[in-house]
Design a protein around this nucleic acid. Structure first.
Length: 582
RNA sequence: GUCCCGGUAGCUCAGCAGGAUAGAGCACAGGUUUCCUAAACCUGGGGUCAGGGGUUCGAAUCCCUUCCGGGACACCA
């Protein structure tokens, strides 16, 4: 039940009935929103100002006409024209109560939407190289992608969560050589310091042991070309197992793990993608000018296979084949995105680190080319995370070589704190993450503050159950309480905020901004805590009124409503809604 | 040199697909409370929304431009 969407429909209907307004105007710019100032009523719309010019009327005159129509809507108590042509609507007393009632009946589904109209969306995120454990840098994209996938699902888009395994490039060969060294070590050889250019982390030690267990000394006698594929496959599979564990510590699971290597095994789908583009004239043999700026040492002017990404807004055309004849990473990525398209996806979202920003245009170009313009790719970039402890930068890890692992952070502060804080900032703004502050139990810590609101709600319910015998235990039963008795300003304000939840979901989904959920929950928590605090000075505002069962029931309904939305929001963020603080 | 992302209160940041007097937390100032339902609460000061142009009835929001910060710039992934 999205009140704002419902009234936007009322407004559009009212406009359509007006003789003074020509038919066929674009009504999509009409917005119904909560006014900033409560004195302006419950709802406000810009309809008259948006349409005035095309209707050939003064905004205030048109507003008057629309307002007159809106007065006929049953739930409307009063309509006023204000300012430059705003239409302010006051709803009949008790309207917000009905929203609460709806929230109580839908429970966790309150706010769930058909907004996405069943359009399938592919969300690709993390896609970390399978060359070691996940580090904190991966963490933000992982949490962001996961929360966005949940958000889009809730908003009515069937989502496929996907991870692209970069198991085909030179880096996994390096991984294999590094693992081979550990294999020799496992067989008793002294390997000394790990040479530069190989992965030094001791997470490869078990891989060496496992190789020794499976193969004994058999690999030692082989040439690198022979052992490398064997070792590589084993190492990649071990790394992916580790990464899945790291992800699961964060509460993240994927529907699809897609192997880059699989694109060229057997049927060469990269070749097919290139051939298709060549056919449509988007691939040609040509030369590139060396980039301006920092000169490149070993620049080699040569004719190469290029994708005409400039046709789709990119700055230069992009190579598909390296000088050694193998495919570029980009070529594989084109084939991969073509595969998504072939699987039926017309809406794709990729979540990348900000350092890949320069890659966005060419990938979008590729998706357009490969889909004949019928598919879109949105790329969401996540900025860096600055990890600190009490303000001091944190670096270096005991075991991983050179970085702080995701696992270390999750183990130290917990999944909930990591996830919430990663989402308590816009994705394209840098983020400070302080290991000490996020576990503080204080008002200043938003994780605690929001979880505490949920815990407090449940505490109130527990206390109420002690004060009154035979209270219903299920939320929906409270929809039948005497909700009309919720007439305190703070209570009404909370109900209005709950009514904003379905609207927020659609907005956040449209903007691809799950952080808005976190901020919404923070504001809701804040208002709930404030209402609780009012009961200290003003005992007649307490949620539990021992001498008035009916009023208590009504207020508990509100508590249930708040708890339901907080729980629902937290679950989209992947944060646990605890019923008790420890 | 080109491209991308940022610049909002002293600090950290929101700002809802252009809307009415720009918000929150911290910090600061003042006050209340030591009670209880669960870790105190209330009030207040504070802003050239980086600068300048433009579009619009209306701009922090859209466009252009300048400045500042970060990132990326064949054949790495």
């Amino acid at each position: 039940m999205n009140v704002y969407a419902i009234f936007a429909d009322h407004v559009r209907a009212a406009v359509a009935e007006l003789d003074a307004v020509p038919a066929g105007l674009d009504l999509s710019r009409i917005v119904v929103e909560p006014p900033r100032d409560a004195a302006h009523g419950d709802l406000a719309t810009n309809a008259a100002m948006v349409l005035a010019k095309e209707a050939g009327l003064k905004p205030r005159d048109l507003a008057g006409l629309i307002a007159a129509r809106l007065e006929g809507v049953p739930e409307v108590a009063r309509v006023e024209v204000a300012g430059p042509g705003f239409i302010n609507i006051a709803l009949s007393p008790g309207y917000w109560v009905r929203v609460l009632e709806a929230a109580l009946r839908s429970g966790p589904d309150f706010g769930r939407s058909t907004f996405g109209a069943g359009t399938p969306v592919n969300v690709e995120y993390v896609s970390a190289n399978p060359t070691g454990p996940m580090h904190v840098g991966h963490c933000r994209g992982a949490v962001f992608g996961d929360a966005m996938a949940s958000l889009l699902t809730f908003a009515g888009f069937p989502v496929t969560r996907e991870y692209y395994i970069n198991d085909a490039g030179a880096q996994v060969d390096v991984l294999a050589r590094s693992a081979f060294l550990r294999y020799r070590e496992a067989l008793g050889e002294t390997i000394g310091a790990i040479p530069d250019g190989l992965y030094p982390g001791d997470y490869l030690v078990p891989v060496g042991t496992e190789l020794a267990r499976i193969h004994g000394r058999a690999l030692l006698g082989l040439a690198e070309a022979e052992w490398l594929p064997i070792v590589r496959a084993e190492a990649i599979s071990a790394m992916m197992a580790m990464i899945r564990e790291d992800l699961s510590a964060l509460g993240i699971a994927f529907d699809v793990f897609f192997s880059e290597r699989s694109l060229t095994e057997g049927d060469d789908r990269v070749a097919r993608a290139i051939a298709q583009l060549r056919e449509s004239g988007e691939v040609y043999q040509g030369r590139l000018a060396p980039p301006k700026g920092a000169p490149i040492e070993d620049w080699e002017d040569r004719e190469q296979t290029l994708f005409r990404s400039t046709d789709f807004g990119d700055d230069v055309d992009r190579p598909l084949v390296k000088s050694d004849g193998s495919y570029t990473y980009f070529a594989g990525d084109i084939a991969y995105h073509k595969d998504k398209f072939d699987r039926g996806f017309r809406r794709m979202i990729d979540v990348w680190g900000a350092d890949h920003g320069g890659y966005v245009k060419r990938m979008q170009a590729a998706v357009k080319a490969v889909s004949g313009g019928t598919a879109t790719l949105d790329v969401e970039l996540c900025q860096l995370v600055r990890l600190t402890r009490n303000g001091e930068p944190v670096r270096m890890s005991k075991r991983a070589g050179s970085f702080v692992t995701l696992r270390e952070v999750v183990d130290e502060v917990g999944r909930d704190a990591v996830r919430f804080m990663m989402l308590f900032r816009k994705n394209d703004a840098p983020l400070d993450f302080d290991l000490a502050k996020v576990i503080e139990q204080s008002r200043e810590n938003p994780v605690f503050y929001v979880q505490y609101a949920h815990a407090r709600a449940h505490s109130i319910l527990r206390n109420a159950a002690e004060a009154f015998a035979d209270l219903p235990s299920d939320r929906a039963a409270f929809a039948d309480a005497a909700l009309a008795r919720l007439n305190d300003a703070g209570e009404t304000s909370l109900m209005m905020r709950l009514a904003g939840w379905p609207r927020l979901i659609e907005q956040a989904a449209t903007a691809r901004e799950p952080h808005r959920i976190a901020f919404f929950l923070y504001d809701l928590a804040s208002e709930f805590h404030a209402q609780w605090n009012r009961g200290k000075d003003l005992p007649h505002l307490r949620f539990i009124m021992e001498n008035d069962r009916e009023l208590t029931m009504a207020r508990l309904a509100l508590v249930h409503g708040v708890a339901a939305v907080v729980a629902s929001g937290l679950s989209l963020l992947g944060v646990e809604a605890v019923e008790e603080m420890k």
